[in-house]
Design a binder for these strands. Structure first.
Lengths: 114, 114
DNA sequence: TACTTATATAATTATATGCTTATATAATAG
DNA sequence: CTATTATATAAGCATATAATTATATAAGTA
């Protein structure tokens, strides 16, 4: 993995965003591909507005992209983010969040976004 | 580099501490070996109590160790910290802070700690 | 058009964070 | 024992952060 060197000033905002349970989980989920908002809400067990506000922070900072399709909005990692390598690197140290999505699948809760 | 997988709950406190300019700089400086408090104060251009309080947070969370020698207290990375790999990994994405220590050297400001 | 569903935004409130100033402690020198 | 230097701690204050509740918007359906 290539390590793009960042100035402290570039790394800090990314790390601030990563240092939150909800946002780190969201980013961990996105490692395996896009997810829609209701999946985050389900996995995190948080209120919809709360999730939405975390997504806004990630969006405003350009860590993630959004893609609306009908009723649903799908989020994915923005590979053009200046500290993308750092984000990927950090996510790499965290246990796989796809397990939580699989858990949803088993509970039949994933079909809510269809 | 080995990637020890952490649970979200273990990674978040470390990332919270990393997401601050002063603390990330301190950790970046420690990558190259121990430093004493007056060096942090000098490089960061912050008040001594402010630096001391950042060091306390890093110490309380076990990211760093302290070693008092006479008047001076030297800090170093704690390689037994549960998220040590993550910390090292993140520091690896940040530009080398040893340059800032070298700068001190040039300015003759480093001898304050002797 | 009106209704429903998914998501976003705004306002409010509670808590956390980081800095400043003042003071305390620890180590050493005289 | 006193003074000095390096560092730590405490109290106070200002700002930042995150959650909740209420409301708005966007897209699709009857």
């Amino acid at each position: 993995m290539v390590k793009t060197r960042l100035e402290i000033e570039e790394a800090v905002p990314a790390l601030k965003l990563l240092g939150d349970k909800a946002r780190l989980t969201i980013l961990g989920m996105l490692k395996n591909g896009e997810c829609c908002v209701c999946e985050f809400t389900e996995v995190l067990g948080m209120s919809q507005p709360s999730v939405s506000q975390h997504l806004r922070k990630l969006r405003d900072a350009k860590l993630v992209k959004e893609d609306r399709r009908g009723h649903w909005v799908f989020y994915s990692l923005n590979e053009n983010y200046e500290a993308y390598d750092l984000v990927l690197g950090v996510i790499g140290y965290v246990s796989d969040q796809s397990e939580k999505i699989a858990e949803l699948e088993r509970q039949g809760k994933r079909i809510e976004c269809k």
